Amino acid sequence: MAFFDKKALYFGAFSKTARIRSVTRVKMTNGVLSVTPSVAPAKEDYLAHILFALKHEGVNLTILAQALPRIYGV
């Protein structure tokens, strides 16, 4: 059984995209949120992804309402 089934979520349209790039700090570059590898959350750490999104990308209640119940311990 998957820890987190991302296929079951409806994400809608994103206003920002984040990418790991060779930058010195988190910043917007050509409409993309450029993130240093040390700041990016681990691939399988879904709670860290949610916290990162809240901090850097803003609040999307639709995604939060779907994602939080699917994370163990929340």
Rank of each mutant, 00 (worst) to 15 (best):
K27T: 04
V74T: 02
R70W: 00
A42I: 00
L47W: 04
T17D: 13
Y46H: 14
A13D: 09
A2T: 09
K27S: 07
K16V: 15
Y10S: 09
K55W: 02
V59W: 00
K55E: 04
E57P: 06
K27C: 09
K43A: 13
V26P: 05
V26D: 08
L64I: 10
I50D: 05
P37L: 08
L64Q: 12
N30W: 04
L61W: 02
A42K: 04
N30R: 02
A13Y: 14
I71C: 08
A2H: 09
Q66W: 02
A48V: 01
E44P: 08
A67G: 05
K16T: 15
N30Y: 01
R19W: 11
E44T: 15
L64C: 08
K16S: 13
V23F: 02
Q66A: 06
Y10E: 12
V35P: 07
R21D: 03
L51K: 05
L54Q: 08
V59A: 08
R21G: 05
R19G: 08
E57T: 07
F3G: 12
L9N: 03
S22Q: 12
T36H: 08
L68I: 02
T36V: 04
Y72P: 00
G73H: 00
A40P: 01
T24R: 14
H56Y: 15
V35L: 11
F4W: 10
H49G: 09
L33K: 04
K16M: 13
A48Q: 11
T17R: 15
S38K: 09
G12C: 13
R19C: 10
V32H: 03
L61R: 03
H49K: 13
H56T: 07
P41M: 13
F52K: 13
R70K: 03
M1S: 14
A48C: 06
R25E: 11
S38N: 04
T36L: 06
Y46D: 06
A53P: 03
E44K: 13
Y10G: 05
T36R: 15
M1Y: 14
E44C: 06
V39I: 10
V39W: 05
F11V: 11
P37Q: 07
E57F: 06
I20C: 10
A8N: 11
L68E: 01
F3R: 14
I71N: 02
A40V: 02
R21V: 04
T62D: 11
R19I: 11
T36Q: 15
M28P: 03
A67N: 01
K43E: 15
L61M: 10
I20N: 08
T36A: 05
Y72R: 00
F4Q: 03
A40K: 10
M28K: 05
A48T: 02
K43P: 11
T24S: 12
R21P: 09
F3K: 13
A40I: 07
Y10F: 05
H56F: 11
T62Y: 01
I63Y: 01
V32L: 04
A48E: 09
A8S: 09
K27N: 10
H49R: 10
